[in-house]
Amino acid sequence: MSKRTSTSPRVRKHLDNAHLLENLVYMGEENVSTSIELIQYDKTQISERAVRPDEKLKELIKPDCVNWFRITGISDAGTTYNICKAFGIPRFDVKDLLSGYRVTKVITHDTNTFILMSGAYISEDKELIIYQNAFILGDNYVVSFQERPSTIFNDAKDAIKEGRVMIREKDEDYLLYILLNCLHSSFNDAIIKLNNRLNEMEDRLIDDDTENINVMRFISRRKKDASSLRRIIAPLREEYINLLHNTNKLIKPENIMYFEDFDDRLRTSLDDLLAFRESVSSLSDLYFNNNNLRLNNVIKKLTIVSTIFIPLTFMVGVWGMNFDYMPELRWAHGYLFAWGIMLLIVILAVFYLKRKRWF
């Protein structure tokens, strides 16, 4: 039984009981028209071309090549369903792809393997962006779906063109491994960039340089980012065991070790994410400690002022009493004497507090 885990996007359509609808409905936030790029290669040659979504995609597969259908945009529910149907993906799996709930699942069918997962990267405005991805692994082909345009798979395409990392000598299962690693690299890159922002904020907190920054909002967003990334990576590792079981034998025995290595990388990413969450908690503690320290400094200054002025207040209170006989009130030099006494008290108090290192 496949476990389904969801991560809500920032903006998502809502339909009451959408799972009961007869028609397929795209529930995500992206409105991207479907485009398909077909990349076919073997040891000696490579070709690439654009394909119309209404073409019969399975008939384009060359049996002596690795065929990669790179699909961008799933907002057209009908087109997405027709593509998935052509490759033997059941309707309920397509519903999960279109749901917008960031479902994670790995399903092995008799003739293909369907992988549904989320991708993540840091945008130009330094915010975490999460979007839906899917893969279909079959005999001589890999189909990749991306909810929104992204350059994450460009490195894989360049590697195919240049014949790097043995990719041209391997089969379609190795291509799937490379694409999964591209997504994993985007996870790691997101965690690293978020960690760098945390370190930058920590330095500013230590230097007390946060005058125009809403630190609590920053910490709250980083907590949400950590939670979002965990809801991507943790379910993927749980579901990934279905891929390693390889019940339909689409992963070649000589390539199993690569997929086992990917499982280790997912575990490492979870450890890095745990460290990131602890760093967020530490930053929160540092922020509150700084606030407490700042408050303590204010109280300390007020205490110093009070310590100096309490004796003066006492003297003023004594001389302000309405008794008929107070000799110093009728003394010709009483006013100057009072000022002298008060200045002496201030000097002695400051000298004493200075020796005690209160300031």
Rank of each mutant, 00 (worst) to 15 (best):
D208C: 06
D203A: 13
Y335V: 15
N248Y: 04
G28R: 08
K249A: 09
K3S: 08
H19L: 13
S228Y: 01
W331R: 02
L57S: 06
F351S: 14
E172C: 07
K95D: 13
D64E: 05
D261Y: 09
D324E: 15
D324R: 11
C65Q: 14
G334D: 00
M326V: 02
A120F: 01
E48C: 05
G334E: 07
E202F: 04
R70V: 05
R222W: 13
S33M: 05
F153H: 12
D271F: 06
K85I: 02
S99T: 00
K62M: 10
D271W: 01
E172D: 07
D171L: 02
I46N: 07
D208K: 04
K85H: 08
Y41G: 05
V280Q: 00
R164P: 04
M257R: 12
E48T: 12
D209V: 07
L329W: 09
A50Q: 10
M1K: 11
K354H: 15
M257T: 15
E22G: 03
V106C: 14
G88C: 04
M326D: 11
S99K: 03
K301C: 05
M117K: 09
E200P: 00
R204P: 03
G138M: 05
I304E: 06
I206F: 14
I122K: 00
L270H: 01
N248A: 04
T307V: 13
R52D: 13
I46W: 08
F218Q: 13
R355S: 13
A338S: 10
F87N: 03
D208R: 14
L128G: 01
Y26M: 08
N196H: 13
L312N: 05
I178Y: 07
T151V: 15
K105F: 08
T111E: 15
T307Y: 08
I129C: 01
L198S: 01
E278T: 09
D110G: 09
E202R: 02
G88F: 02
